[in-house]
């Protein structure tokens, strides 16, 4: 995937998605992520692997379902099936703020320039941009706005409670 941004830099993506349909013997080595359902089913065998692990949530999944696994995961993949569907913004904040996830939270799907700022504020730090998006241009989106009013994953307090 070439339109991928991690921590505000264009990056190559090292992760392989695993659908759950593959034979577990034919799984690639390296870092893989699996759908939540597969994670819940094959957690033990997946944990025996050497590479890093990630879980992909659909945007109706409750992130609480993986809260106890988060220290063994390096990636949680969230979906934005279309731009207008903002459920995953809440999932991202819960993962970061409530469950203290430190790994990569990745946005996939309709990931467009004009959402990047909001996504980043909710704790998302990996972005699989939609194919038609220009990566180097998109990097500008993170700094278009510098003033934020409310607490989110990047700020504990609202603007009126911050020391400046």
């Amino acid at each position: 995937m070439d339109s991928y941004i991690k921590d505000r830099k264009a990056e190559g993506d090292e992760w392989m998605p695993f659908t759950g349909l593959e034979e577990s013997s034919s799984l690639p080595t390296g870092d893989i992520y699996v759908p939540l359902e597969e994670w819940l089913k094959s957690r033990e065998s997946l944990l025996e692997r050497n590479g890093r692990l990630g879980v992909a949530l659909s945007n109706t999944d409750d992130p609480a379902l993986i809260k106890d696994d988060l220290d063994r995961l390096d990636l949680v993949v969230l979906e934005f099936p279309k731009m207008a569907d903002g459920r995953a913004f809440s999932q991202a904040r819960l993962l970061r703020e409530r469950y203290g996830f430190k790994g990569e939270i990745r946005a996939t799907g309709d990931v467009l320039y004009d959402q990047l700022f909001y996504m980043q504020r909710c704790g998302i730090n990996g972005f699989e941009l939609r194919n038609d998006q220009d990566v180097s241009n998109s990097l500008k989106a993170f700094d278009e706005m510098t003033v934020t009013y409310q607490p989110a994953s990047d700020e504990e307090f609202p603007i009126w409670r911050r020391e400046d």
């Binding site: 569907d85 903002g86 913004f89 909001y118 706005m145 009013y149 409310q150 989110a152 603007i159």
Partner: peptide, 13 residues
């Protein structure tokens, strides 16, 4: 007003 302005979580309700 301040809390809701560009609230990052609630911009695509």
């Amino acid at each position: 007003r301040q809390w809701s302005t560009f609230h990052p979580e609630f911009n695509f309700l």
